[in-house]
Structure formats: structure tokens, C-alpha cells
Amino acid sequence: MGFRNSSLVVKQLLKFYNGCKRREVTLGVKRSYLTESTNEMRNAFGEEKMDFNVPEDSIHDWIGPPDKFSNLRQIKFHVPKNETPLEHQLRTLRMETQEWNQQFWVNQNLTFNKKKEEFICTDLKTKGLERRDEEGRKRTLTADEMAIFYKEFLNKNFQKHVNYNKEWYKRNFIITYLMGKVAFHRAWRKLCRKN
């Protein structure tokens, strides 16, 4: 692919991204769920958002501990004092992508755990067993029994994951492109200052 063609592809992807900002991308999950913030979900489960402190004089992004529900690490993005519009666009897209990713995986993990628990309870009931044994410990199923659940869950959520991966690649391609532009503009400014 020549330079002109790749430039056209990037312009089309940026046009697509700007269109996505205006409309809701649901990725096969309920729209109302995606508009519900992760903090509201935490409140429903009696959890508070994990927070970590960043030194005020920091000039870098900081990566925090993994989130309890999504298993993704939180990121606190550095905001430069003289942030250019291009740098602002990049940081905003990275923040939106982080939040989008967070919401998807919170939803996916909570759904997975709920369905897994339902599967275990149903299977134990068909065997005539309670969820807990005589000593109060939770009963579990064998790996072969759980394999049925895992296969069923993956099959039911296949299209959701395909849609997620497509959107993830689009977002990361645009982020990479913008990072290249920002790096080029910073290098260009340094060159101009030296001359």
C-alpha cells in the first residue's frame, strides 16, 4: 500500500471514529448498561472505586492496581500544561477507550460470574445436592463438568467478542496513528526551536 492509500485509510478511520463519538456503539450489550457508569455499578455491589495518589509534579501517566471487577489496571493520564489540540485529542481518545474497555470487561466478568454460579447451582440441584456441604463449604464441579459451561458461555458470547475486538483494533490503530503525529509534531517543534 502506497503512502497516499495509507493516508486515505487513516482519514477514513478518523472519520469513522468521529462518527462513533456521536452515536452509541453497543457491542451487543444493552445500551442502558453502557450508559451506566462503572462507579454506579460499584455502588450497587457495595464497592468503592479504588483510587491511588499521583504526585502533583508528575509528568507521566500513572498505572494503578487492577480493578476488582474488570481486572484492568486503572490509568491516571498526565495533562501537560501547554497541551496542544492534537495532544488533547489523543489523551481524550485514550481516556474514552480506557473507560469503554473498563465498562465492557466489568459487564463481561459480572455476567460470567453470575452465569457460572447459576450453572453450578442448577447442576448441583439435578444431582440432589445443596450448594454447601455438611461442613458449610461451597461445593464445586469437576473440570469436565465446568467445561460444558465454558464452551456454552463462549459460544453465546462469540459475536459480542468479535464486535469488541473489531472496535478495539480500530481504536488502537487511531491511537497509534495519533501518537505518531504527536511525536512528529514534538520533534518538529524541537527542530524549529534549535534553528
Rank of each mutant, 00 (worst) to 15 (best):
N43V: 10
E56K: 15
S37H: 02
M41Q: 09
K49Y: 06
V54M: 07
P55W: 01
E40H: 08
E36R: 04
N53P: 04
N43E: 14
M50S: 12
E36N: 02
E36M: 04
M50A: 13
F45Q: 04
N53H: 15
T35F: 00
D51S: 13
K49M: 13
Y33T: 00
A44G: 04
D51W: 10
Y33V: 01
S58L: 05
R31T: 00
D51F: 08
I59A: 09
A44K: 15
T35D: 01
M50H: 11
L34E: 00
K49D: 08
N39E: 13
I59E: 13
S58M: 08
W62M: 11
T38D: 04
S32H: 04
M50C: 03
N53Y: 15
G46Y: 07
M41N: 11
M50Y: 14
F52H: 06
M50T: 14
V54R: 09
W62E: 14
E56I: 11
N53E: 15
D57K: 13
V54H: 11
M41I: 14
K49C: 08
I59Q: 13
E47G: 01
S37T: 12
S58H: 05
S37W: 01
L34D: 01
F45R: 06
M41P: 00
P55G: 05
M50P: 04
V54C: 09
M50D: 09
N43W: 09
N53L: 14
Y33G: 03
S37Y: 02
R42P: 01
E48P: 02
F45G: 01
A44F: 10
G46A: 05
D51T: 15
R42V: 03
V54T: 10
E40M: 08
Y33E: 02
Y33R: 03
V54P: 06
K49H: 04
T38V: 11
E56H: 13
D51E: 15
E47H: 09
M41T: 15
H60D: 14
N39R: 11
P55N: 06
E56W: 08
E48R: 07
N43G: 05
N53F: 13
D51M: 12
R31L: 00
V54N: 05
E40R: 14
F52M: 06
Y33A: 00
R42I: 03
L34T: 01
I59N: 10
L34Q: 03
M41D: 05
T38N: 05
G46M: 06
F52V: 04
S37C: 03
R42W: 05
Y33S: 02
N43S: 09
D61V: 11
S32A: 07
F52D: 04
S58C: 12
A44V: 09
S37Q: 02
K49S: 12
R42G: 08
G46K: 08
D51K: 15
R31A: 02
P55M: 05
D57Y: 11
H60W: 09
S32W: 01
E56A: 15
M50Q: 11
D57W: 10
N43K: 13
E48V: 09
Y33F: 12
D57G: 07
M50R: 13
T38I: 07
